[in-house]
Design a protein around this nucleic acid. Structure first.
Lengths: 237, 237
DNA sequence: CGAGCGATTGAAAAGACTCAACCACCGTGG
DNA sequence: CCACGGTGGTTGAGTCTTTTCAATCGCTCG
């Protein structure tokens, strides 16, 4: 099911500049490379399950991953999107508790898994790593609080516009078509980001199409009018 | 407006066991006491404002404080409730950025303010403090994610039941009346916790009263049937 | 006493959800 | 090859929840 494949080298990893591991020293990087394992996950495969302790620190090298929680009725609420260089499962690992969230690949993804021991050794040896983790947690908490306010107070229409801009921001656009989002989501996943029912999402997408804000073609979404979409989404910057 | 008053001593503070400062050493505690300032805030007074850098690390000694964000239309969404021993403003202080949230006293509160310098000195000198902060951030992020899913997927009725139980859990009950919540909130504040309109909150409270789940008397709320309320709120533990 | 604020209630409207049907596409197996 | 079934997407209709607007009420404070 999950195959170990080509193993990227942390020392030369281009995504490390964005990572919490960005200022780990040479020596530790070697230890990291020698103890880590790397896997490819196919689209849809689950990397981490809510309620289960993660087996290590997952580091996304290539691909796109959704972080989500499952509600009472089994509906998924996506709480975060991970991209190259992002770590997954670090919270549960640090606290020694079951993971509060699930993670699954949105497309084929290459993920490095750093053993718990290595991670904790790193944490002890590298003084700034804990500060990097604090920064990451702070940023994620900030985003989460923002999301709370928006879900509580903004209508679906605004939240969808916001979500589309987030997707562009996070995963960028296709090579050769700067208006087409590079990520392909099912309607259900998109609804899971916005926090609404599938049907409501579909209708609101249809509205946006009528208003020439976007166009869709299967799962490919093009943003036709960025500034007007930003206005709909109440985006300030 | 804000008066400096009696100054509690960290070394003997009974709330320190719950605090991120719980394992700061004797010497550092003395430095803390000698540099900190303490203020009393009256009910409603703002301790910290969204968008403004905090002037220090606030440590709630006595009282009750709401942490909230203000939405587009000016409506407040309460994202967290602080009680004795909780710290406020630590995120913005650590990151050196404006506060992402506001904080205001729900009742007269005694708050110690630790200067930024002292806090960072503490952080450098005390190895475990950063881990305490990571624990705190993790817990708060977990709560925030939980809240996201609930606001997105649960009806007001369930969220209100949950909120009432949270209030009991957080602030406890009155001396001599273990069913009466010790915290007194306006309807607007309660609505701000649940994430709904005031009128909807009032109606749902009225429903609960009819069902003999609670009783209200001005702002005093009594929980009459804890287990049934927990059932309404979908609480598992 | 009157102004003003917070709480409550009613009525109407809007927003979002659910249910159901239908379509389009795709791959499979007869 | 084509019929078939399954999945994901779309649309319509009706309903339910929640919000909004408006009016009223009670209380407190100057």
């Amino acid at each position: 099911m999950i195959h170990e494949r080509r193993k990227p080298i942390c020392a030369t990893c281009q995504h490390r500049v964005r990572s919490i591991l960005r200022d780990v020293d040479e020596y530790a990087l070697q230890h990291l490379d020698s103890t880590k394992a790397c896997y490819t996950y196919k689209k849809g495969q689950v990397i981490l399950s809510e309620g289960i302790p993660p087996s290590g620190l997952y580091c996304l090298h290539t691909g796109k991953v959704k972080i989500y929680k499952t509600g009472d009725e089994g509906r998924e609420k996506i709480v975060r999107l991970a991209r190259n260089g992002d770590v997954i499962g670090y919270r549960a690992l640090l606290m020694g508790v079951p993971s509060p969230v699930s993670a699954a690949a949105l497309e084929e993804s290459l993920v490095c898994c750093i053993p718990q021991d290595t991670f904790f050794k790193l944490l002890r040896a590298n003084g700034s790593l804990s500060m990097r983790i604090i920064e990451l947690l702070s940023a994620e908490l900030g985003n989460a609080e923002e999301q709370i306010v928006h879900i509580a107070q903004r209508p679906v229409r605004e939240r969808l516009a916001e979500a589309l801009l987030l997707l562009k921001e996070t995963y960028g656009t296709e090579d050769g078509d700067s208006s087409a989002l590079s990520v392909r989501l099912s309607r259900e996943e998109l609804a899971g980001i916005v926090g609404t029912a599938i049907e409501t999402l579909v209708r609101t997408l249809a509205d946006f199409k009528k208003e020439r804000l976007i166009s869709t073609e299967k799962r490919k979404i093009r943003i036709l009018d960025l500034s007007r979409l930003a206005k709909v989404g109440n985006i300030q910057d």
